[in-house]
């Protein structure tokens, strides 16, 4: 896995605050204490049950592909083609990210197992690295 996190000197910041740069890096959601619904963003109340209490819950780094597309005509300044995947995480949660190193539909199968990986997606003018996450096919990541 490139750019392993945690022992590098450059200051790093996760691309979104639901990516936690511990060892190993993983995702964390806000879990509704009433119904266990998971949210990546801050919520005023649970959209499922209306509860207002949340706890942090670490999510699995492994999951299965639920949906995908290969984007050829991308937003301005976004390199294309790239593959977007919706992943059902083992033990709960659904997340969207890029499927790394795959740009052909022939490499994607129903329920294909994938594993989270991180990489540096950008550097600001102070040298702070923004760390993003994506998924790799488990057979590639193994």
């Amino acid at each position: 896995m490139p750019n392993s996190i945690g022992h590098r000197m450059p200051q790093q910041i996760p691309i979104v605050d639901y990516l936690v740069l511990s060892e190993p890096p993983h995702l964390e959601a806000h879990a509704c204490t009433g119904c266990d619904a998971l949210y990546f963003d801050r919520r005023n109340a649970c959209a499922h049950c209306g509860g207002t209490e949340f706890t942090r819950k670490p999510l699995s780094n492994e999951g299965r592909v639920r949906a995908y597309t290969i984007v050829h005509r991308a937003a301005p300044s976004v390199p294309a083609p790239y593959t977007s995947v919706v992943v059902d995480l083992d033990d709960g949660g659904v997340v969207k990210a890029n499927l790394l190193d795959v740009t052909g539909p022939e490499h994607i199968e129903p329920g294909m197992p994938v594993r989270l990986g991180t990489y540096v997606a950008g550097v600001d003018d102070d040298g702070v690295e923004a760390v993003a996450f994506g998924y790799r096919r488990q057979e590639d990541a193994a």
Binding site: I13, I15, V16, D17, V71, V85, V86, K96, N98, G122
Partner: peptide
């Protein structure tokens, strides 16, 4: 360019094309 956390996801840069796609065709 100076990264700072913005919005409800605390994102530091535009996530379109990095964390998948959210545009209509995709």
């Amino acid at each position: 360019k100076q990264y700072s956390r913005k919005g409800r996801y605390g994102s530091v840069l535009k996530t379109e094309g990095i964390l998948g796609t959210g545009l209509m065709p995709g």
